[in-house]
Simulated assay, not measured.
Amino acid sequence: MLLRDIAHSRAGDKGDISNISVIAYDVNDYPLLEKYLTPERVKAHFAGIVLGDVVRYALPHLGALNFVMQHALGGGVTRSLALDAHGKCLSGAMLGMDISDVT
């Protein structure tokens, strides 16, 4: 199952930091988000793009997780040579994550 099957996302960027929120369509799917969307898995999913720390903030009453990813935009939106590596592009890429059981 892909993440986009159970959630949508919102994103923002500032400097070289990308901020992505993943929100379950149904709050009953929130435990799946918590289980499969660890900072380590998110960083691995963005290997070669996110070069800094990934910090996860839980918002259980909203059925959401927020990820703050440092050094994720090639030096910053105005400095990057990437065509469109801004937060919105990364949030779409995050929804392509496979959230099948990895154990």
Rank of each mutant, 00 (worst) to 15 (best):
1 M>R: 00
1 M>F: 01
3 L>T: 00
3 L>H: 00
3 L>N: 00
4 R>A: 00
4 R>E: 00
5 D>C: 01
8 H>M: 07
8 H>L: 07
8 H>R: 12
9 S>T: 03
10 R>T: 12
10 R>W: 10
11 A>D: 09
11 A>T: 02
13 D>W: 08
14 K>I: 11
15 G>I: 12
18 S>F: 05
20 I>N: 07
22 V>Y: 12
22 V>P: 13
22 V>Q: 13
24 A>L: 08
28 N>G: 04
29 D>T: 11
30 Y>R: 09
31 P>Q: 09
32 L>D: 03
32 L>R: 04
33 L>D: 02
36 Y>C: 09
36 Y>F: 11
38 T>C: 06
40 E>K: 13
40 E>G: 07
41 R>F: 02
42 V>R: 00
42 V>L: 00
42 V>C: 01
43 K>N: 08
45 H>C: 10
46 F>D: 03
47 A>G: 08
47 A>V: 10
48 G>W: 15
49 I>W: 02
51 L>M: 11
52 G>S: 14
52 G>W: 13
56 R>M: 12
57 Y>P: 03
60 P>K: 08
61 H>T: 06
62 L>V: 05
62 L>P: 05
62 L>E: 08
63 G>M: 02
63 G>P: 02
65 L>V: 07
66 N>E: 07
66 N>F: 03
68 V>P: 03
68 V>M: 04
68 V>C: 04
69 M>R: 03
70 Q>A: 04
70 Q>F: 04
73 L>K: 10
74 G>D: 09
75 G>Y: 11
76 G>M: 14
77 V>D: 09
78 T>Q: 11
78 T>C: 09
80 S>A: 13
81 L>F: 07
82 A>K: 15
83 L>T: 15
84 D>H: 15
85 A>G: 10
86 H>E: 07
86 H>G: 11
89 C>Q: 13
90 L>H: 03
92 G>R: 08
93 A>R: 00
93 A>E: 00
94 M>W: 03
95 L>Y: 02
95 L>F: 01
98 D>V: 00
100 S>K: 06
